[in-house]
Design a protein around this nucleic acid. Sequence first.
DNA 1: CCAATTTGACCAGA
DNA 2: TCTGGTCAAATTGG
Length: 331
Amino acid sequence: MDMSNWEQKNVLSELVHGLKAAKQLQADLGTSPFPPPPSLSSSYSSCLTTEMKENLLHQIVSSYEKAILMLNGPTTVYSPTAEMVNLAADPVANTGKVPESPTSINGSPTSEEFLEGGSKDYNLSSKKRKMLPKWTEQVRISPERGLEGPHDDVFSWRKYGQKDILGAKYPRSYYRCTFRNTQNCCATKQVQRSDDDPTIFDLTYKGTHTCSQGIPPRERPRDNKPDTTLVNYQNNLLDNLRTNLTVRTNGPIQSDGFSFPVTPPFFSYESDFANGGGTFGHLGNSGPSDFTGLISTNTSTGSSPIFDVDFQFDPTAEINTGLHTFLHDSV
DNA sequence: CCAATTTGACCAGA
DNA sequence: TCTGGTCAAATTGG
């Protein structure tokens, strides 16, 4: 893998950021054998709010996610140019004290974004534009669901607008997180039906969920019993993925495996596409996969390949993912 | 009654 | 001024 200096710097930046957040959390928990670095000591009064701790956790996990993704190669359906969105113009969207946690998605956000974290850096960036990660994906509705659209994923969204877009056949719908007001969650998404293929929807997500949806039930004391809440959560995710998802890739397909994120979560594919499909496992676990999937090629479209993806969770498997925005069960 | 959706108005950036 | 994005009052639905 030949990485450019730019990529190396980004990976390094991610890891440094994750480490920084981890140390801050560690210090707050009082488990650090070392005093906090001077650069952080000013905010080290060991009085982080739960919200701040969760935010730090978010940062840690997403930093690792991004670093891994970068190392795993740039193949993605997301915009490779790190489209960042300035939502500072929306006063309501930025009333929260705790900024949006960086996403796990490969929006290639710059380090500037991370400076918005729950540390003292937050104040340093007060003059900077509030940046939220943005990424897009394409989802094709399945025939049995009709044309109602892929409007339900694992998050609950509330529609707040619809707009006719110049040059587009279909209007664009605007959704925000249901818990925006109650939990200060600034995640939004836009849904736009494709002009070319009405069964395909372009989804544009902005920001990640900081609400309880984005942070699933915390790990319980280990009693060897499966966390049913978590299993339900998995199944919910599974159902939605199964029902809605077809992933469209933009880049050329390599026969020796490729990876792309499907939001959520990310998968590593190792399959023989020349034979029309294969299986894949959850990326990033050294142990058994949390879930597996089946890919079959869909030949109905010509040059742009569409793969039908079927997911299967192993309900007995312990969730251990650092690669999923809302499966933060680790740490 | 409450929550979600609809839809015209409003606003900011290009 | 045009366009995309958001607001918020009115409406709908459970």
